[in-house]
């Protein structure tokens, strides 16, 4: 069952590449694998925690105020992540900058709270949060690997191709758009092919 959930979160319902949620932080923080991975892990943490809490209190919250309540819960965990990052990983916090507090408006978290956690039990919500977070992290890493290698000729801070002068545009804004266009198109192409061969 866990394996199916993993497959769902990372492949078939990948929040970034299939559901197209959480765009803003993805393009901004995928300039290097360390940043992308760090952001992905922060989002996974918030997603898992908020899913659990929201699932626990789902019966007690009246429908009308559920969105503000979700936001308060999510914002609490985001603030905790902010404080923890500032104290234990200050370098990462500086790199991610404004996008750490912006995790609170990451559509993935609110989306999963609304679509899943408010309708399922805590354990299932926890697993959903974790696999969706891992899917997000995986897609961030794919984008980061491409952008870091092409844009700064490095991977994890170490040089990659000898004698290659990097295309700086890839770690700047346009590069982010082009990279995600390519990755998304590839994902769709592969998805379409699978559908054709199955049919």
């Amino acid at each position: 069952m866990l394996k199916e959930e993993l497959k769902r979160g990372i492949i078939t319902e990948n929040p970034l590449l299939i559901l197209v949620l959480g765009l803003c932080p993805s393009l901004a923080t995928s300039t290097s694998v360390q940043n992308g991975f760090g952001m992905g892990m922060a989002v996974t943490f918030v997603l898992a925690c908020s899913n659990v809490i929201i699932s626990i209190v789902r019966k007690g919250i009246p429908g009308k105020v559920r969105i503000p309540c979700f936001i308060v819960v999510i914002a609490t965990f985001v603030t905790m992540v902010q404080l923890l990052m500032k104290s234990y990983l200050p370098a990462l916090d500086k790199q991610l900058g404004i996008f750490v507090p912006l995790i609170v408006v990451n559509c993935i978290i609110l989306g999963r709270a609304e679509a899943y956690a408010s309708k399922n039990n805590p354990l299932k919500s926890l697993i959903d949060g974790i696999v969706m977070g891992l899917g997000f992290t995986a897609s961030l890493c794919i984008l980061s690997i491409i952008r870091e290698i092409l844009g700064s000729n490095k991977l994890l801070g170490l040089n990659f191709f000898p004698g290659y002068d990097p295309m700086t545009v890839f770690i700047l804004a346009p590069g982010g758009f082009f990279t995600i266009a390519a990755v998304m198109a590839l994902v769709r192409y592969l998805g379409n092919r699978r559908k054709d061969t199955k049919a």
Binding site: V57, G60, I61, P62, K64, V65, P68, C69, V72, V73, A75, T76, T79, M80, L83, L84, K86, S87, Y88, P90
Partner: peptide, 28 residues
């Protein structure tokens, strides 16, 4: 009922954040 629920949620949130802050303030 709405007001009570919102108040409880907000207070709990505020406490959780204040707790984390007190633990990490010095290190930051």
């Amino acid at each position: 009922k709405l007001t009570v629920v919102l108040t409880i949620v907000s207070l709990t949130a505020a406490l959780a954040i204040a707790f984390t802050n007190s633990k990490t303030k010095d290190r930051i």
